[in-house]
Simulated assay, not measured.
Amino acid sequence: MTKQFDVAVIGAGIAGLAHAIAASRRGLSVALFERSHVAQAASVRNFGMIWPIGQPAGEWYELALRSRELWLELQQQGVLDLEPCGSIHVAKHHDELDVLEEFSELGTHQVQMLKPAEVLKRAGIVNSDGLLGGMYSPTELRVDPRTASARIAAWLQASGRAECHFGTTITHVKEGHLLSSAGDRWVADRIVVCSGSDLQTLYPKCLAEADLKLCKLQMMKVQQEPISRMSPHLAGGLTLRHYASFTQCHSLAALQDRIATNHPELDRYGIHVMASPFRSGRIIMGDSHEYGDAITPFDKREIDELMLRELRKLICLPHWTVCQRWHGVYAKHPTLPVFESQPDEGVHVFVGTGGAGMTMSLGLAERSWQRWHGHSQT
């Protein structure tokens, strides 16, 4: 007998998990499908940063803050562990300090400016050479990206909120029926496709017409001695030219011009440096951005060396032995925080959260379910 559900979610990365959570909170029966035996794509290959500070003022920033609330609810329910670590953008050049001061004066985000001594007090690993100051935001969270998705899926399964089918590739969807590569079938009233960077298996025409672009990023990890207190996420001045929240700053143009003139290699590979220090001593660092046809399976040593060069300007470490290197690939829409479409009756495509999947998915999925099924939750 073909098993029937109210909702089927295809993809158990953070976007798919967010939809499974939102549907189950409305008392709906949920089946969650993932082609891998564990989530292993973009949702586990990131900094573990919930990063509202990167979202532009208005609706997107408010959605990021709502996502933050939903992450904290998961912690309160014992699903996973979070650190309310906040973040510091570090300024080493006057044009970087100008952007941070202008951004702070706009009053659109919850931030405060810090003197150099205050930066070092909050984050002792910051490199003090040339330090002009920084900007603190209290809204950022840290989660272990390598365990968060698995823990959420295990909670959904154990609590009866969803029936999880890992190692199950859905190859065909038609009129509420789902077919796997093994020939198994399920039926659902509503199907949500959260296929991440896979733009070919399901609804390739729809996704091709969406102008989605794939992005590859390189990252690395170093292991230091455990630290006794929580450290904020750290971002260098290069980051100011990457996140949409800072585009409202007129002073950004001077910073962008300096980088383009003096360090075109950083623009060539979309390099901006960030570091997430865990209490265990693990520090996740990166990253870079290569798009479309520039993406290959092979990582570039030049990118790693450039990132390490810039990271040494941002932080000081007892040693710089890199114990792991990896890359991730995600789909990004050029203008929207996520691409949503309804290619068939009862089918919703939800992809393209870009590098903000951890930050935005819970809030974006909740917004979708408020539109589809109302506000009531259980």
Rank of each mutant, 00 (worst) to 15 (best):
L82P: 11
L74T: 04
L199Y: 07
G270D: 08
E101T: 15
S36P: 00
I191F: 01
E302V: 14
T201H: 05
R45Y: 00
G346Q: 01
L141K: 07
S197Y: 06
L82V: 15
L100Q: 08
Q55G: 00
K300A: 11
I14D: 01
R241W: 02
V351P: 10
T261L: 13
T239C: 15
V44G: 02
L80S: 04
R68N: 07
G134L: 08
S36T: 09
A41F: 05
P343W: 03
V38A: 14
V143T: 11
L63Y: 01
E96H: 13
G78A: 07
R66E: 12
L362W: 02
T171Q: 13
A158N: 13
R367H: 12
Y136N: 05
L80R: 07
K313I: 12
A158F: 03
K300M: 10
P297S: 11
L65C: 14
D198P: 13
D299K: 11
Y243P: 08
Q77I: 01
G130Y: 08
A117D: 13
A254D: 09
E290A: 13
M219L: 15
D81I: 05
P343K: 03
F5D: 00
S368R: 15
G27R: 06
A12R: 05
I191S: 01
G196F: 09
Q77H: 14
R282L: 13
D189V: 00
R122A: 13
R68M: 02
G27N: 04
E305R: 15
A208G: 06
V351Q: 10
L156S: 02
L32S: 05
F5G: 01
D95Y: 11
E34D: 12
G48V: 08
R371P: 02
Q324K: 14
D304W: 10
A162F: 04
V9S: 04
E34C: 10
